[in-house]
């Protein structure tokens, strides 16, 4: 039912979402942790910056990224020197774009769950002579499990649905940057409605199931804090 091109786009999209979520969890955890515990005045500013992709048109992000990732750009130029490859139109470019674009979807649930966990369990762990890292890994992060599940699922789903930024910086290269949402766009433009229906219906169903899982988890898995 799916053409080779569509399967390729599906596989690429799944890869992109997986890599992006991994990067986001690694980058997002310290940011969310700091936001949840810091009393610095910077906190509000960082919180606003993290939330920016929620309100900015994707074209704003796409425009800045296009300039920054070009071979003369501030990211693209050093990248070219180190890797001898251009950054724009590459899978890496999409990962960078998606990471920025989905950042609030990962940081915000993590922050909420870290705030819910509070500092009590950590202080207890500290009194029991656990190192801060140990305390985080064995005490705080399991308690924030619900936040991690929500962040992973939302980050993944939001990356699947990304369109505007990828359209601007991707270049629609099959197997490299042509993701599902772009394939759907192309199918609609060329009046291939049957294919557009298959892909759109699939994404719709997937997104619904994803959200259903998130809400079910949120109901069933109360935060385990005494």
């Amino acid at each position: 039912m799916l053409s080779y091109d569509d399967l390729q786009a599906l596989w690429l999209t799944l890869q992109l979402a997986t890599v992006t979520v991994c990067v986001l969890l690694i980058v997002g955890t310290p940011i969310a942790w700091w936001l949840a515990h810091s009393r610095s005045k910077l906190q509000t500013i960082v919180e606003a910056v993290v939330a920016l992709p929620l309100v900015l048109p994707p074209t704003v992000l796409g425009f800045y990224l296009l300039i920054a990732m070009s071979p003369q750009g501030i990211i693209g130029s050093p990248w070219l020197q180190f890797t001898d490859a251009t950054l724009s139109f590459s899978f890496t470019a999409l990962v960078i774009a998606s990471t920025l674009y989905s950042l609030p979807f990962v940081v915000q649930p993590l922050q909420t769950s870290f705030e819910a966990v509070g500092s009590m369990p950590l202080e207890t762990a500290s009194m029991l002579r656990a190192s801060p890292v140990d305390a985080f890994i064995s005490v705080a992060s399991p308690l924030a499990l619900r936040g991690y599940i929500t962040a992973t699922v939302l980050g993944f789903a939001h990356t699947l649905g990304e369109f505007g930024v990828v359209l601007m910086v991707g270049g629609s290269i099959p197997g490299k940057t042509k993701v599902l949402s772009i394939s759907i766009y192309d199918h609609v433009e060329t009046l291939e409605y049957a294919q557009a229906h298959t892909l759109s219906g699939g994404l719709l169903l997937f997104s619904f199931i994803t959200l259903l899982i998130v809400y079910t988890i949120n109901r069933r898995l109360p935060i385990r804090v005494a």
């Binding site: 296009l66 300039i67 990732m69 070009s70 071979p71 003369q72 750009g73 693209g76 251009t86 724009s88 139109f89 359209l167 270049g171 629609s172 290269i173 766009y185």
Partner: peptide
């Protein structure tokens, strides 16, 4: 084939070159 980047329309193709990305 593997070096081709496609603009959604000719305007975007032009913009890819003008911005130095292609």
């Amino acid at each position: 084939q593997h070096r081709i980047v496609q603009g959604e329309n000719i305007g975007q193709a032009f913009q890819f070159v003008a911005s130095g990305n292609a």
